[in-house]
Structures are given as structure tokens and as C-alpha cells.
Simulated assay, not measured.
Amino acid sequence: MPTLKTTAADMVAAARQRIDEIDTETLIAQQDDPDLVIVDIRDVRERHKTGHIPGSIHAPRGMIEFWVDPQSPYHKDVFAQEGKRYVFHCASGWRSALTVATLQDMGFNAAHLRDGFSDWVKQGGAVALPEK
């Protein structure tokens, strides 16, 4: 196996030093804020299996940069809302940390849920389950 110059864990640690992180308790308290957009970047299969934060939008990790960029043919209007605060999350906070660091590099202001959806569930945050 080749030796990497940097590990995924190193990349996450570096991202976390320069992005805004929100703890689970704070996000639970802010969940009903109409100016808050919670963005779930987990794979659709994860959302289907474990549920999602009610009212969150789903934006697959592989499309984020394209959906956020107004110059992209894949742009989604949900990311062009004036006055909104965006908080991204994944299962444990790794993917969302990297995502928010990338978006910050693009000039898009966002934060991420530090400990992810798994901590959201652990701390009793509301979960919407998919219809069967």
C-alpha cells in the first residue's frame, strides 16, 4: 500500500481549525429557526436507513460544489437564499468538515454539525424516518 502525504484524518483536523463548528445541543435548540437551513450530505442510503433531521434538505456530498455555485448548470436555488445560515452535517462530522472547508474556499459561508447525525440521535434530536 502506498504511503500518503496526508491522511483523511489530517485533512479533517486541518479543516476543523478554520471552519465554524456547531455542537449538537446548540443545533437542536436552533432547529426551528426559519433562517436556518440544515443540509444533510450523507448518502441517500444512509438517510433512508437511519432517518434525517426534520426539515433538512438532502444534498449528496458529490454534488455540493456544483449545487452551491450559481455559475454551475447544476445550481440549486436553495443555496442562493439571502439571509439564511447553512449548517451541513454527515454521520460523524468528517465529511461535513471537509465540505464546509471547500465551500468556505469558494466563498460560501456555512458551518457544520461537529459530531454529526449520530450525536444528534444520541442527544435526542428529532428524527424523521422515511415512509415505507
Rank of each mutant, 00 (worst) to 15 (best):
M1E: 01
M1H: 00
P2Q: 00
P2N: 00
T3G: 03
T3M: 09
K5T: 01
K5P: 00
K5S: 00
T7A: 04
T7D: 03
T7F: 03
A9C: 00
A9Y: 00
M11Q: 13
M11P: 00
V12K: 11
V12A: 06
A13D: 06
A13P: 03
A14F: 11
A14H: 12
A15P: 01
R16S: 04
Q17T: 15
R18Q: 15
R18V: 15
D20Y: 09
D20H: 13
D23L: 09
T24K: 13
T24Y: 12
T24P: 11
T24F: 12
T24G: 10
L27R: 12
L27H: 10
I28R: 14
I28H: 13
I28G: 08
A29Q: 15
A29F: 15
Q30L: 09
D32K: 14
D32L: 12
D33E: 03
P34W: 10
L36W: 06
L36Q: 04
I38M: 07
I38L: 08
V39E: 02
V39A: 02
V39F: 04
V39I: 10
D40A: 06
D40N: 09
I41F: 03
R42G: 01
D43T: 09
D43Y: 05
V44S: 12
R45H: 08
R45Q: 11
R47Q: 07
R47W: 05
R47F: 02
T50M: 14
G51P: 07
G51Q: 11
G51N: 10
H52F: 13
I53F: 03
P54Y: 09
P54S: 09
I57C: 01
H58G: 09
P60R: 04
G62Y: 00
G62I: 01
E65G: 05
F66C: 00
W67P: 01
W67I: 05
P70A: 01
P70N: 02
Q71W: 00
Q71I: 00
S72Y: 10
S72D: 11
S72L: 13
P73A: 08
H75S: 14
K76N: 05
D77P: 09
V78H: 06
F79N: 06
A80S: 06
Q81T: 14
G83W: 07
K84R: 07
K84C: 03
R85L: 06
R85I: 05
C90W: 08
A91L: 05
A91H: 05
S92H: 13
S92D: 06
G93P: 06
G93A: 10
W94K: 14
W94A: 15
R95D: 06
S96M: 04
A97Q: 08
A97W: 10
A97N: 07
T99P: 02
T99Q: 02
V100D: 04
V100A: 04
A101K: 13
A101R: 13
A101Y: 07
T102N: 14
L103T: 04
L103M: 06
Q104G: 14
D105M: 11
M106D: 11
M106E: 12
M106K: 14
G107Q: 04
G107Y: 03
A110C: 07
A111F: 12
A111D: 04
D115T: 13
G116V: 12
G116Y: 09
S118C: 02
S118P: 01
D119M: 13
W120G: 03
W120K: 07
V121G: 02
V121E: 08
V121Q: 11
K122L: 15
G124Q: 08
G125D: 09
G125Y: 12
G125C: 10
A126Q: 10
V127E: 03
L129H: 05
K132L: 12
